[in-house]
Design a protein around this nucleic acid. Sequence first.
DNA 1: AGCACGCCGACT
DNA 2: GTCGGCGTGCTC
Length: 735
Amino acid sequence: VSGAPGGASYASVAVPVPVRRLFTYEVDPSLAATLQAGSRVRVPFGPRKVVGTVVEWPAAPPEPGVAVKPIDTVLTHAGPISPALLELTRFVADYYLCSWGEAIETALPPDAGPRPVRRLARRLPAADPDALSARAVARKRVLAALPADGTLRPLQSFAPTDRRVLRALAKQGWVEIVEQAEEAAPEGEPAQPARGPTPTPGQAAVLRELEPALAAREYKPFLLYGATGSGKTEVYLRASRRVLDLGRGVLWLVPEIGLTPLLASNVSARFPGTVALMHSGLSKRQRHDAWLRVRDGRHRLVVGTRSALFAPIEDLGLIVVDEEQDGSYKQADTPRYNARDLAVVRTRAERAVLLMGSATPSMESFQHARAGRYGLLRLGGRVRQRPLPEVRLVDMRREFGLSKQVKPVSDELASELRACVERGEQALVLRNRRGWAAAVFCPTCGSRVVCPNCSVTMTWHLSAARLRCHYCGNAEAFPECCPTCGTDSLKLLGEGTERIEDILREAVPGATIERMDRDTVRGRGAHEKLLRRFDRGEIDILVGTQMIAKGHDFPRVTLVGVLSADQALGLPDFRAGERVFQLLTQVAGRAGRGERPGTVLIQAFDTEHPLLHQAAVQDYEAFFEDEVRYRRALRYPPFSALVQLIVIDREPSQARLWAGALAAALQREGRGKLIVGGPGPAPLERLQGRYRQQILVRTAGRRRLIAAVERALRAVEGEVPRRALHVDVDPYSLL
DNA sequence: AGCACGCCGACT
DNA sequence: GTCGGCGTGCTC
């Protein structure tokens, strides 16, 4: 297999660099016994060493003329990557057009570095504080603080100065200092599993439909479609119970919303000791440890965000994808994978059940379900017969006609808010734009203040007293006069959450109002902390961006206001409508989750827009029918697969040139079967000082599309530098 | 992605 | 005369 008799043997290694190629290394006979596909190996790579993964061994000898280097060492402490995981990462590399090494890197836990050691001190038998000289006050005191029986005491429990004294005592031979690897923190789970509620008839019916698939050990995908509050979580929990009882593992994916710990503790209560948590809020160490515990089979149920898709669960029986339509399943940087789509791949490979849930399924998933490729499970009714909220559209044109001024918060919403607060209930107000003003406008010349690096308007933040670019972070002082024409009559345009908060303070006197957006909740736990305060009733009105739409069940919320609901409908993105519908449905679902009925006010200028009416009556299927017609007509997903290519350079002419070459290659390689849109300026033509040209390629067959894109990328390899290219297969957002 | 090699501006 | 800027190219 590996060359001449008695000759060297070779291994094919995937290295973590963005080069879609494998590298051949020589395997020393001494390593042969420990090596296998999936082994992590330290290899020389150019002038440095990298840790790569053996993907084939033994492998064919290299082409003549390449100077093969030997594998340095085989890393054994982490163990090899399982064949299943190796295969999944190979799929990621092929499908999302990244290198296999990069795919493996994202599937593995972060390198946590050496485990922190705990140092402990112990008094040696002969040591006696009284034997020390009377002048050695500190040493006497510190020695006396150590137990006479020689029990260990952590160094951490001493003051820093005393620790130095201890070291001196150790030098003298009175004290011994020992090192001990830090143990992973004990779980502290409740021993008694919590009993869940009795399933509603709807839940029971869905579970009956699921049962044969759960027991069958065969790939079967389902879409669980049910309104907010219809009790999807209980279905997930019961399905998980069933699969765990069969001895198989469960993976439960949730969107990235900072509430994962909350959900996980609820799940843990039902399955004490079985649940591992995997999300980006954890430290490297915690993620690393959780990964190892899962791989060792100590946790059979993993709750986590996007990257948990790669959790090394053996014999996986079920993947739950909650809120499957959520955009956070799509990774923004390389590899740009979608965990929901990969869940299909993984369940298929592992002969497991896929259970995706949503109140507003993605167009893709609902279309699959309608076409019979996914089992469609409808969950009707609301838990405890809670009525749907009353949704009213507020016509802002009429509002303008009455008051002759543009008011971001209508009189109708203001009075509802006052009444709500007076009743002692709570309200949410959604405005999908942060800052005080969306733009600074010059009425003299008609220009707006734009970011010097990006083709976007600068946002005015009053509390920070800075103009900020939300794309590159550039911040400036408010200009004294117009940067374009020099006159000093600059006006603010478009109210952001900061301004809305202010307006509400005036409109609803006496109410406690807080704001939740990326400016007010930074860092770990801030998001959850604010929501907890809201939950405890310490806040009457919570204003914020779409952040407030996701999350928890707030029983005291009876009013939801949405400002400029139709604004996002005009965005140059084929998913704009879908996203607005999802957001409106989601935020409307926040109203009236307790005993009292809820009211939702949706403010818009284009109140005739069918989508707003469909959202108002919570008619997902009517929305779907309209949207599916539009997608079919324009051949957008789900009626095609789509790849977005962006060519970036400081020089606009250079970007155009390269994009032209790439588009031509795509035309050629597509052999007339691809729809090649562009090249043309990307929706955000300039970002961080670089010009961006966009090409959108689509066609019905996704394998064919990806293969053609791959060939085109290879064809322009010498011409277009790799770093100038962004390739996004199945993009979620085109902006 | 690193990292080295390689050709043009402000400094001891 | 060098130190160093980051453009280009390669990594078995």
